[in-house]
Design a protein around this nucleic acid. Structure first.
Lengths: 151, 151
DNA sequence: CCAATGTCAGGGCCACTGAAATGC
DNA sequence: CGCATTTCAGTGGCCCTGACATTG
């Protein structure tokens, strides 16, 4: 199954990048499921992936994820019902609410990040660490994402 | 706008790969639009990206794209209405139909591939060709996509 | 009065599952 | 008859635009 390479498009970066993203996403989902987080889907990444220990505002999350406030708000509501986040009034701004991970939310985030680290390590063991790091640096440079010097 | 890097997730390959895919896809759309193909959307790639000069069966396209026959069939119907493909009965198999690019369809496919080549060349000029080729080879190896020796 | 925050309502795109008609 | 190919019908996920109440 999956795309055979009997067509020229298979070599295009957009195809390779897309498939690689999908491969990581699917495996992440599988392992999260196996780890007891079967109710977490890929969409939820717009919250888990951009929220820090102190929580964040909806607007902030939406900006970081490149999505609308409405879209992220819907995800936040779902994660709230699942018990992964809570909404607290912002003491400094009556309009805003702080979206914060619950204890279980923190566990899920750590589990997800750990799985992603594992997957990258598996890639590194297949390709050699330099090639994986070369890819990360190349992508970060292209996208303008600063990678901290120390790792 | 776009994802700031004030969170650890920004360094994860899945985030970088996803953003890179989106960046290429959006720019492809913009340039196709500018080239007079404003009615072609990203979804159409499941046909344009996997169809050869002799056309292909629906089942074949679906397999290559990793989508269901129904999904690709809907795209094919839309592209047919737009005049980019035609459906011909398969002379060897009464059940099947051959989906083939029309003349305009071929032009569009060539235009799209040329734009993707241009975008990759622009990346190469920013990063150095070795780094882009290194990325392509790394991804192809990870995904099991054989890259032809020549090039 | 204007801007920012979050939410409600509605819609569109996309790809899925299920079921059917036809031909091998 | 079993299986492959295509298509019709229905559904759900996901993210959008627009409008609104509330607060800074």
């Amino acid at each position: 199954m999956q795309t055979p390479s009997d067509n020229p498009h298979a070599r295009h970066l957009i195809a390779l990048l897309d498939r690689a993203t999908a491969a990581l996403g699917e495996e992440l989902g599988r392992r999260l499921d196996a780890a007891g987080y079967g109710d977490i889907r890929e969409t939820h990444g717009c919250v888990f992936g951009h929220i820090g220990p102190d929580g964040a505002r909806l607007t902030e999350l939406a900006e970081r994820a490149g999505l609308t406030k409405q879209a992220v708000g819907e995800v936040a509501t779902e994660l709230q019902q699942l018990g992964y986040v809570e909404r607290l009034p912002d003491p400094d701004d009556g309009r805003a609410k702080i979206i914060r991970l619950t204890e279980r939310g923190h566990e899920a985030q750590r589990a997800g990040f750990a799985i992603l680290d594992d997957l990258e390590a598996e890639w590194a063991s297949r390709l050699g660490p330099e090639r994986v790091e070369g890819m990360r640096e190349a992508l970060a440079e292209l996208l303008g994402v600063p990678l901290p010097a120390g790792v």
